[in-house]
Design a protein around this nucleic acid. Structure first.
Length: 384
DNA sequence: GGCACCGGGCTCTGCCATAGGT
DNA sequence: ACCTATGGCAGAGCCCGGTGCC
């Protein structure tokens, strides 16, 4: 069909004809009315002018939709020069799915290329996402959060293959849901890129003498939904770095990786390296040994996720509150709570003369509800 | 009833660089 | 020459409660 028109393709002008033809085709397929009409003369003032100029009627439409045109121009200037776009089709499509006017405007402002997708494409992609999400609302919320994840790729077939591939890894529907909700970019990756990461993880497992590479990869992905949107280079550098630092046996390291350590594999390399160095320095200065550092990292790898300043402040808060470093090392989960929260609890416990030496520091990492219940009990028992 | 253990929930985008296509 | 599609990067925690053991 299109090849018949290629014969007509000339230096300029005729390509416009071809596009006009395409547009009419789209119209007949989707039943969607043409959004804008162009007089042929508008494109006859030379190829250069029409190529470089922004499409005025498109700008007008975008303004009517409440789009931040300045932002759109800054992000994807080429889109504003396109002759045929589908902004109104996109807007009514999204509104039909429950998106507000503001959401639509914000989506287009942040990812203008969205308006180049045909209705057919949108319907199909939406259905593919609906295989994983139960409601349109969920999808709208994600588009509002991250329009690029949904619109960046025009390859629905690749999306289909990704879903099939990720399912084939043994990830449950629930995992897929978490994955798409949390790191939607994963599904816009090329199948090949996802496959590379999975195979890389499997290789790591085998290298460490593991016997279940598939389970290993699955465990890491389901524990850290972000690995698939990281480069293998990054994840590899982190694994190498941790391996060199922890100096565990292969089997121990393998277990650690698919356990809580998985959570920190996606950190940027320098960040992890810096946090590691600072944590080591701080603990050694406080009288801990290398072994303590390792123990802390294995028991609570999130210590490396927390920024150096935050972690340092948190440690100070605990130490000043009468907690010893040894107690922290034995129960690193106390570092899981915010400094503000910990400080408030220390204060409250001081008020009732809570004895950390006798009772331990477990009370500090209770959920709010459990903490309150505990306090209440302590108060009433001392009253009696 | 109290505790330890464990995993999960929220959420993580928005920009830049570049190969490859027209 | 221009645009699209895609890879890659930096950035940086906190909280809750189910379950099973004693």
């Amino acid at each position: 069909m299109a090849s018949g028109f290629k014969v007509l393709k000339g230096p300029h002008g005729l390509s416009t004809l071809q596009q006009a033809f395409k547009c009419i085709t789209v119209q007949s397929v989707t039943g969607c009315p043409l959004q804008r009409f162009y007089s042929v003369t508008a494109n006859e003032n030379g190829a250069k002018a029409s190529v470089n100029a922004e499409n005025m009627s498109l700008l007008e439409n975008l303004n009517l939709l409440g789009v931040d045109v300045k932002m759109a121009r800054q992000r994807q200037p080429g889109v504003l020069r396109r002759i045929f776009t589908n902004e109104q089709g996109l807007a009514s499509f999204l509104q039909g799915k429950g998106a507000s006017r503001q959401t639509v405007a914000s989506i287009i402002s942040r990812y203008p290329r969205a308006i180049t997708r045909s209705l057919e494409h949108l319907e199909q992609r939406w259905q593919l996402w609906r295989n994983i999400f139960q409601t349109d609302e969920e999808i709208v919320a994600i588009l509002d959060r991250s329009p690029e994840s949904f619109f960046r790729s025009s390859d629905n077939n690749n999306l289909k293959k990704n879903i099939a591939y990720l399912s084939s890894l043994g990830l449950s529907n629930k995992d897929l849901h978490r994955l798409l909700a949390t790191a939607p970019r994963t599904f816009s990756n090329s199948l090949e890129l996802n496959r590379q990461m999975v195979e890389f993880l499997e290789d790591v497992c085998v290298e460490l003498g593991g016997t279940g590479p598939k389970e290993f990869a699955k465990a890491i992905i389901s524990r850290n939904l972000y690995v698939l949107i990281r480069s293998t280079k990054r994840v590899k550098a982190n694994i190498d770095n941790l391996r060199a630092t922890l100096k565990l046996s292969d089997a121990e390291f393998l277990t650690a990786l698919q356990g809580p350590v998985a959570k920190i594999l996606d950190l940027s390399n320098e960040y992890l390296k810096n946090n590691l160095a600072i944590l080591q320095g701080r603990l050694i200065a406080l009288g801990s040994c290398e072994e303590d550092v390792k123990k802390l990292i294995i028991g609570y790898p999130m210590a490396l996720y927390i920024g150096a300043v935050t972690l340092s402040t948190k440690l100070d808060c605990l130490l000043q509150g009468g907690i010893t470093m040894k107690q922290i090392l034995d129960r690193p989960k106390v570092l899981d709570y915010s400094t503000k929260n910990v400080a408030a609890r220390l204060e409250e416990l001081r008020g009732i003369n809570y004895d950390f030496k006798a009772n331990g520091i477990g009370i500090l990492d209770l959920s709010r509800k459990r903490f309150s219940a505990k306090i209440e009990k302590l108060v009433t028992s001392t009253d009696e």
